[in-house]
């Protein structure tokens, strides 16, 4: 069972924010100007600790993170976020000599990195990708959440029939297998489609086998 706050996160997504964490004032201020010029919503923090103080599990967007900072380092912040179930994609901005640290961090999760000095066009593109990634994974999590919730709403018989149908059996075959009439199978099937929120059999199939978000 998922935590209550995560449920709110999934059901009411807030506006995407690019969180910039950098101890250098000039970098923070200039990145804010650049990103706001690209019409992004920006929030800056001067340390990993400051970000942790404002980070909420329902935060959505991405995290632009300097690798080397006094106090908690970028990779350490990443570990802490994982512990707190904050799944923001992270874009590391790494200086010279940070590569081993970043490689280590990349093994740990959804991260990308840009080596300084980077191109601003590149930066904006990577931030765009991170935001898409965040929206996608948020959607996936929402779909998964809805699906499991709806599955829980099915009766045992409906669940049985769903599994058979998804396995590719016709109503007739299902009736024969479960020793119930074809009509009964059809009635159950209509009900479970409604409960699962599927408009068509194709949609139901996609939902159960992991389809695209447009289908929900």
């Amino acid at each position: 069972m998922k935590a209550a706050n995560e449920m709110t996160e999934i059901l009411t997504p807030s506006r995407s924010t690019v969180f910039v964490v950098d101890d250098d004032t000039a970098m923070r201020d200039s990145l804010r100007w650049l990103l706001e010029s690209a019409q992004l919503n920006v929030q800056t923090c001067d340390s990993a600790e400051a970000f942790l103080a404002i980070a909420r599990p329902d935060a959505c967007g991405c995290l632009v993170l300097d690798v080397q900072m006094p106090g908690l380092s970028g990779p350490e912040l990443m570990d802490e976020l994982k512990r707190r179930h904050i799944h923001l994609p992270i874009l590391f901005l790494s200086g010279h000599g940070d590569i081993p640290t970043v490689v280590q961090a990349m093994k740990g999760g959804a991260v990308d990195f840009l080596q300084k000095p980077y191109d601003n066009a590149q930066l904006l593109e990577r931030i765009g990708q991170a935001l898409t990634l965040d929206a996608d994974s948020r959607d996936a999590r929402r779909r998964e959440f809805l699906r499991s919730q709806r599955l829980e709403g099915l009766t045992a018989r409906e669940r049985e029939i769903l599994d058979q149908v998804v396995a590719g059996r016709s109503n007739k075959e299902v009736g024969r297998k479960l020793a119930i009439s074809y009509k009964t199978v059809e009635a159950h099937r209509g009900r479970l489609m409604r409960k699962m929120g599927a408009a068509s059999f194709a949609e139901l199939l996609q939902m159960m086998l992991g389809g695209r978000r447009e289908t929900i």
Binding site: A26, M27, S30, W33
Partner: peptide, 12 residues
């Protein structure tokens, strides 16, 4: 550092 900041401002 200062060059990157300058570029950020100008691109913005």
């Amino acid at each position: 550092q200062p060059l990157a900041a300058t570029l950020n401002y100008l691109h913005g």
